[in-house]
Amino acid sequence: MGVWQLLLVGLVMLLGLFGVLVPGVPGRWLVWAAMLWWALHEQSGLAWVLLVGATALLLVDQVVVWLLPPRRIRGVGITRRMIAWAGAGALVGFVLIPVVGAVPGFIGGVYGSERRRLGGHGPAAASTKNVMRAVGTSVLVELFACLLVVGAWLGAVIWG
């Protein structure tokens, strides 16, 4: 697979990661479609194993998100800026502490956004708890699954 195609696959995966954070965008399916595209062009044993693993993981993720309580966005005060901070925090956390760093990074991003908006630790911590109860868990589960798929793909491209 050429460098340009790898960059396009990576770009679609990145778009999928951002799509997880934006309601209405099928982020997990963009990540899966990029993995499928890569596997069809790579056609190696590792590529097929990763595609099957990604498919299974994202299907389990879909079921888990359905089983979580419904999102209660109204009245919590979620803004686009908060979503951007949370997503950036998850990505930074994922890079700094591979895989498990996404969770504290996501929560830290929400807290950072609220700290900036509200000005103090107490109100920011209370608001972060409310946000995590309302929508954070389902978004975090979906984002974590997609980050695992992207991380596996990156590992296969770099070391495979």
Rank of each mutant, 00 (worst) to 15 (best):
V52R: 01
G53W: 02
G53D: 00
G53E: 01
A54E: 01
A54S: 03
A54F: 00
T55G: 05
T55P: 04
A56N: 08
L57D: 00
L58W: 00
L58H: 02
L58K: 02
L59A: 09
L59Y: 06
V60E: 02
D61F: 04
D61A: 05
D61Q: 11
D61N: 13
Q62C: 11
Q62T: 15
V63E: 00
V64Q: 02
V64N: 03
V64T: 05
V65D: 10
V65K: 06
W66P: 07
W66A: 14
L67A: 13
L67V: 07
L67H: 12
L68S: 06
P69K: 12
P70H: 10
P70R: 12
P70K: 12
R71M: 09
R72Q: 14
R72V: 12
R74F: 14
R74D: 15
R74V: 13
R74H: 14
R74A: 15
G75Q: 03
G75T: 07
V76H: 06
V76W: 09
G77F: 07
I78K: 01
I78A: 06
I78V: 15
T79G: 06
T79I: 05
R80G: 15
R80H: 13
R80Y: 13
R81A: 15
M82P: 01
M82H: 07
I83F: 10
I83C: 11
I83H: 10
I83Y: 08
W85G: 04
W85T: 07
W85A: 09
A88L: 15
G89I: 00
G89Q: 08
A90Q: 02
A90T: 00
A90N: 09
A90Y: 09
L91Y: 00
V92H: 11
G93D: 00
G93K: 11
F94G: 07
F94V: 05
V95E: 01
V95S: 06
L96T: 10
L96Q: 02
I97R: 05
I97M: 10
P98M: 06
P98G: 04
P98I: 10
P98S: 04
G101P: 05
G101M: 04
G101F: 06
A102M: 03
V103Q: 10
P104L: 08
P104Q: 00
P104V: 04
F106V: 01
F106K: 05
F106R: 02
G108H: 04
G108W: 04
G108I: 01
G109R: 05
Y111L: 13
Y111C: 04
Y111I: 14
Y111K: 07
G112T: 04
G112K: 05
G112V: 02
S113V: 03
S113I: 03
S113T: 01
E114Q: 12
E114D: 06
R115P: 05
R116H: 14
R116N: 11
R116Q: 14
R117T: 12
L118V: 11
L118D: 03
G119R: 05
G119Q: 04
G119L: 00
G120S: 13
G120A: 15
G122Q: 11
G122Y: 07
G122D: 11
G122W: 09
